[in-house]
């Protein structure tokens, strides 16, 4: 039985701690205070809370101004409104000048956007930010990982993007592996037949798929690639070399996100058969999270089939 957590609360509690410890953190919202559960924060720390209204471009550019004067703003609203509507402000005024602007995108993925429909389901965010030079991109697995990731990006100089979810975000089963920015986490090691690279809120599915595969005699290693940029090139290349086959599983379009990142690295460092499980370059629709993931071929059977397909090509 999956236990649900809340990555939005995890974020707001972390920035609250940061504000208590440090005079530099500021929360910038675009009428997104409810999205990030920030009412208490706004009440307790009014001077550390800036709400510019429904105006994401202004939120990001304003944050660039704050950061240029030594503050560390977190701009928090829906993922797509940051990465698409305010994309140019992110690229030109936060990332290009290497300013300390931290971007926190909610509803990352189709499952986090779930019942809202396409306007609030964001499956291009990682592809967009990943092409912007100099930006750290983190896709935490669950609420505990959000706490670690938010602290980590705070302590690293420069722009960063942190993906969070809907507030009903599965907690990863048997979570014991510590978070280290820029390093993959090995979450399961059944063997070295195939590596399942994943991140975000679909990890439990991948862990279960690895168990199913194991019962069928296919021994997988599950790696959480929470930091999409900078990529843990050595860690990933090593797994590719050890297993010789891979599957990527992500709640994102298969173009631009984890699947692309692993494929790009593999082509350069260690070419192996790879199958990409994710949204297959189509628009999703409203629905409950788990049903949506199944409907759009990010289900257990899809992961299992992809692993078998990858393995088959490896053994040709």
């Amino acid at each position: 039985m999956t236990v649900m957590g809340n990555t939005r609360i995890a974020f707001i509690e972390t920035i609250t701690e940061l504000v208590q410890q440090d005079s530099k953190a500021v929360l910038v919202c675009a009428d997104s205070v409810l999205v990030v559960k920030g009412k208490d924060f706004a009440r307790k720390y009014p001077d550390r809370f800036i709400d510019v209204g429904i105006a994401e471009q202004n939120a990001v550019a304003c944050a660039a101004g704050l950061a240029s004067c030594g503050l560390i703003p977190f701009v928090a609203t829906y993922a797509g409104f940051i990465t698409m509507r305010a994309c140019e402000q992110v690229r030109t005024f936060a990332a290009y000048p290497n300013l300390n602007v931290k971007l926190v995108g909610a509803n990352g993925g189709i499952s986090a956007g779930e019942r809202e429909g396409v306007t609030h389901q964001f499956f291009e965010d990682l592809g967009i930010v990943r092409t912007i030079p100099g930006i750290t991109v983190v896709v935490p697995a669950d609420e505990g990982q959000v706490r670690c990731a938010a602290r980590a990006i705070y302590s690293v100089e420069g722009p960063a993007y942190l993906r969070i979810g809907s507030g009903r975000d599965p907690i990863v089963d048997s979570e014991h592996v510590p978070f280290e920015l820029g390093k993959i986490r090995i979450l399961a090691q059944h063997g070295k037949d195939v590596t399942l690279f994943t991140n975000g809120f679909v990890i439990n599915r991948v862990l279960r798929a690895a168990e199913i595969l194991s019962k069928e005699g296919i021994r997988a290693t599950v790696a959480d690639v929470h930091t999409l940029k900078p990529l843990d090139r050595d860690g990933i290349a090593s797994l590719l070399a050890q297993t010789g086959a891979a599957v990527t599983i992500e709640d994102h379009n298969v173009i631009g996100g984890l699947g692309s990142a692993i494929a790009e690295l593999s082509v350069e460092e260690c070419p192996v058969p790879i199958k990409r499980v994710g949204l297959q370059d189509v628009y999703p629709r409203s629905g409950k999270p788990e049903a949506l993931l199944d409907y759009y071929h990010i289900g257990l059977t899809d992961i299992v089939a992809a692993a078998k397909s990858s393995l088959k090509r490896k053994n040709l």
Partner: peptide, 25 residues
């Protein structure tokens, strides 16, 4: 130079951020 610029329209927002930063610092 206090701010990168060139793509039009962004200066007022960045300036607002600077003013708010002045208050905080």
């Amino acid at each position: 130079i206090d701010s990168t610029s060139g793509s039009l329209g962004n200066g007022v927002s960045i300036g607002l951020g600077m003013v708010l930063a002045g208050r905080l610092t």
